[in-house]
């Protein structure tokens, strides 16, 4: 070990370590670094006093002003609500019909509705409500399974379809189509006949066909005379090519009549506040030219 000495080039002291004639400098930390270090230590002590930090045996120090992250959030949300209240309080107070009549309010509600739709509804109904063939209905056409008025749409969004919410659409089983094939109510031949008739409704109804009689005996109560719909909510019109689960072909109708698919939708009143649902309602109503 060499002796600790002053290095002639840098003017610093050496540590006394030496390897093959190379000596190690003992350069002290720069002044600015030392100053910042001690200022940080003092800052930390101030931080302990002002903010919640130290645990005690059964609690923790709450800090001088009792600050908390969750309390801060409540303040932030209050400020945000205030900033939006110019419009949101109007929407809160107005009915969906009134919102639709007031141009400036409608503009605001449409923007809010579009954002809420993207986060909550687009997963099934697609961006802009284009739907998903074979799975989820389009909201951008004229067919409304559960009614296309503002009030109907608001009700459907609030309680959903066929879920555990007692007020959900069809939740009481009132809109469940019987399994005509699987439960043996109709024979396969009758199902084929009625399917031919149902497909004919899209253009020229096959009057006098055996399918027409089967249709009138079994289907009219829900799907309406000539398949115009409107029998009960949830039963779609059949005189269009618009389908949710199948293609509008004979095979498609046979599949649905034999063992029907039924859609369901969550109860959004459980997740979203009434104001958001109102904004969603006017937005959805606008997509398909609601009634």
């Amino acid at each position: 070990m060499a002796s600790i000495e002053k290095d002639s080039v840098s003017g610093q002291m050496t540590t006394g370590h030496e390897w093959d004639g190379i000596k190690e400098l003992n350069t002290p930390l720069p002044k600015w670094w030392i100053v910042i270090f001690w200022v940080s230590v003092i800052w930390a002590i101030g931080y302990w006093i002002v903010y919640p930090s130290w645990p005690t045996t059964s609690n923790y120090s709450h800090g001088l002003f009792g600050w908390s992250a969750r309390g801060q959030l409540e303040e932030d949300l209050k400020d945000q609500k205030l900033a939006r209240s110019q419009w949101l309080s109007k929407i809160e107070a107005a009915s969906v019909e009134d919102i639709a009549k007031d141009k400036s309010l409608l503009n605001y509600a449409m923007v809010g509705g579009k954002i809420a739709f993207g986060e909550n509804c687009a997963a099934c109904h697609g961006t802009g409500g284009i739907g998903r063939p074979g799975a989820y209905p389009s909201l951008a056409d004229d067919v409304w399974l559960w009614g296309g008025t503002l009030a109907d749409i608001q009700q459907t969004i609030t309680h959903g379809v066929r879920n555990s919410d007692p007020a959900s659409r069809g939740g009481d089983g009132s809109a469940t189509m019987p399994s005509f094939g699987a439960d043996g109510i109709l024979t396969p031949e009758q199902i084929s006949q009625v399917a031919e008739y149902v497909v004919s409704l899209q253009k020229t109804p096959a009057a006098g066909s055996p399918g027409e009689k089967i249709f009138n005996d079994n289907c009219v109560a829900c799907h309406g005379q000539g398949g115009v719909g409107g029998g009960i909510p949830g039963a779609p019109p059949l005189n269009t090519a618009i389908r949710t689960f199948t293609k509008p072909t004979v095979e498609g109708v046979i599949a649905q009549v034999t063992k029907p698919h039924h859609g369901s939708m969550p109860s959004w009143g459980r997740r979203l506040d009434a104001t958001t649902i109102k904004m969603l309602t006017v937005y959805v109503h606008s997509l398909g030219g609601g009634k």
């Binding site: 909550n120 997963a123 099934c124 998903r132 799975a135 989820y136 879920n163 859609g263 369901s264 939708m265 969550p266 109860s267 459980r270 997740r271």
Partner: peptide
């Protein structure tokens, strides 16, 4: 929980791009 229907979740697990 409750945000999606069972039907959606099943389709989504099988192939997420079927629905998103």
């Amino acid at each position: 929980g409750g945000k999606y229907t069972d039907d959606w979740l099943v389709r989504h697990f099988i192939n997420p791009r079927d629905v998103v």
